[in-house]
């Protein structure tokens, strides 16, 4: 049975989590970001969270546009600064789930310092990084995640800089939950999002996603569908793999799975514990801001 839905009565199940007045989105055909957004929407729905209490913060870039499409309190900030903004928001409202959704260039290059320090502090936020190996919004420049020898508009003869291994970076900086999936592993990705959001502390999910217009085209890899097929044939699921061993090389096997899932006191736990130890009963456990007097 098939129904062709007329435009005026579209009722996609994700609609309550999407700003339908802004769809269609800006992403290219066969881009993987939209798929990742669906995974997050499904994860939020399955977690049965009070959606009023979920905020999403993005930086700049293709993935940076996610905040604008999610029907949540959403913040589209400056390039690289989504994490510090989210940190401030989290400290003011620790009762809320704060999710940073941005790209590899935004989070790891210009925002790399914030990424490692927020992981170090074990701030209770979730960071989702869509890694498409390239700066896509600006036209396909080399990124700190571009595999060696891959071409980009600013590495026209092939990249010769070592890329970052994002799970290793997150894990060694102090993240308590680290996973990597591709946009094709949609159900496992959804599960990873659910686990990451439920985790107390700095949780990180890297999503390898196809960029058809730039990464695939500049490297003559076909389109996004071809990259999805590549993920299908070349992903190796290896839970608990040592993040040291999961570098991504150009068109090599991609190790995916959950690599880190540990318990550690969060930034606010540590702040409260220390102050309680020092000040005793004089210290009132910090539980959030003072802003909302209109209840």
């Amino acid at each position: 049975m098939i129904t062709e839905v007329a435009q005026q009565k579209q009722e996609h199940p994700m609609e309550k989590l999407l700003r339908m007045d802004r769809i269609p989105h800006i992403w290219c055909p066969t881009c993987g970001i939209g798929t990742t957004v669906t995974a997050l929407a499904v994860a939020l729905e399955q977690l049965e969270l009070d959606l009023d209490n979920v905020a999403v913060v993005s930086g700049i870039g293709c993935t940076g546009r996610v905040a604008g499409y999610m029907k949540l309190d959403s913040f589209h900030t400056t390039h690289g600064r989504a994490i510090p903004f989210a940190f401030g928001l989290h400290v003011a409202r620790p009762d809320m789930k704060v999710i940073v959704f941005s790209g590899d260039g935004d989070l790891i290059s210009i925002g790399g310092n914030h990424f490692i320090h927020t992981a170090r502090r074990n701030v209770d936020i979730t960071v989702i990084c869509v890694n498409n190996f390239i700066y896509a919004m600006t036209g396909g420049q080399v990124a700190p995640t571009t595999p060696l020898t891959a071409k980009s508009s600013t590495s026209p003869y092939g990249n010769y800089e070592h890329p970052f291994n994002l799970p290793l970076l997150a894990a060694s900086s102090g993240a308590v939950y680290v996973a990597r999936w591709t946009a094709l592993h949609i159900r496992r990705l959804t599960t990873a999002f659910k686990e990451a959001i439920s985790k107390r502390g700095f949780s990180f999910v890297e999503v390898i996603a196809p960029c058809s217009t730039l990464y695939a085209r500049l490297n003559k890899l076909g389109d996004g569908l071809d990259l999805m097929k590549f993920y299908h044939d070349n992903s190796i699921i290896k839970h608990g793999a040592d993040p040291k061993d999961i570098d991504i090389e150009y068109q090599s096997k991609i190790t995916v799975g959950k690599f880190v899932d540990i318990e550690k006191p969060t930034f606010l736990d540590c702040l409260n514990n220390r102050n309680k130890e020092v000040f005793g009963d004089k210290y009132k456990i910090y539980g959030g801001g003072n802003g909302h007097n209109r209840d």
Partner: peptide, 10 residues
Amino acid sequence: EMLCPDFAIY
């Protein structure tokens, strides 16, 4: 539905 990047099928 989950793989569609454009929320165009369900």
